[in-house]
């Protein structure tokens, strides 16, 4: 009888867990209900109760700013539903403001399209609750396995192509994150992950906070959510590589 080492047996018996995203759409179990943005179920200008319910001012009668939305779900009782796309990151901050509450055409061309198939990512926390950090790091678990797509985490900004930044920038982290940004070799990109990095989230306006990452360093991609699910972060990284429109079966 062949002795199979226990680790191999364990891994073998659990089988392949890895998502088929981005070659197939994300599956429901990969994104919790609050993992996507709220969308009005009827014309936005008729949902007069919704703006007052929104604690971050994300909802007006004209538009929904997904960059401000913290997925608190209070608008669900005022004619909204969590039905937005999981691939909701944008290259321009203004594109996260959905006129009429509906998403517009998405910009997918990234600044690192010329780098080919491999990209190195460096995670920086400038004031997070740790949830965004853990969703970014989840990309390396077997369910998302970012390495199959040529996305690797690195331990130094000198070796990185992309700075993934989480949290609301505090005064104390302005200089460290600027130095980290300057340490990246060109071409480089910055992805702001989560409502805090985009505009401060629920903490916007607190003393000692810069409010938005783009006031500190240039940002190439904004990923809304509180926190965004790993699939949304994966999409954003792929978009900076110009690879978010990967054809089915393509690598």
């Amino acid at each position: 009888m062949i002795h199979v080492p226990s680790w191999l047996q364990l891994a073998w018996e659990r089988g392949i867990l890895t998502t088929k995203y981005p070659f197939e759409p994300a599956r429901p179990e990969e994104v919790s209900p609050a993992g996507v943005g709220p969308v009005p179920t009827s014309p936005l200008d008729q949902l007069t109760d919704a703006p007052a319910r929104c604690p971050t001012g994300a909802i007006t009668l004209d538009a929904v700013d997904q960059g401000k939305c913290v997925r608190c779900a209070r608008c669900l009782g005022a004619g909204f539903a969590f039905t937005g796309p999981v691939e909701s990151s944008e290259a321009r901050r203004g594109d996260l403001v959905w006129a009429g509450g509906r998403p517009g055409a998405q910009t997918n061309d990234g600044p690192l399209a010329d780098l080919g198939r491999s990209i190195h990512v460096y995670l920086v926390d400038v004031g997070s609750c740790m949830a965004c950090n853990l969703e970014v790091l989840a990309l390396s678990n077997p369910y998302y396995d970012s390495q199959r797509l040529g996305i690797f985490f690195t331990n130094s900004p000198r070796h990185a192509d992309v700075l993934v930044v989480v949290g609301v920038p505090t005064e104390e982290m302005v200089e460290p994150v600027r130095r980290a940004y300057e340490a990246l070799p060109a071409p480089k990109a910055v992805i702001a992950v989560g409502a805090c990095a985009i505009g401060g989230g629920v903490f916007a306006g607190n003393p000692g906070l810069k409010g938005a990452l783009e006031q500190v360093i240039p940002v190439d991609r904004f990923v809304p959510g509180c926190p965004p699910p790993p699939v949304a972060i994966l999409h954003a990284i792929l978009a900076t590589m110009g690879r978010s429109r990967t054809p089915p079966g393509g690598r």
Binding site: Y122, L123, V124, D125, V126, G127, S128, M130, N133, L137, F153, T154, N155, S156, P157, G167, T170, E172, M173, P176, V177, A180
Partner: peptide, 10 residues
Amino acid sequence: GPISMGVPEA
């Protein structure tokens, strides 16, 4: 720190 991959927090 305050930026290091070993401790993924600031």
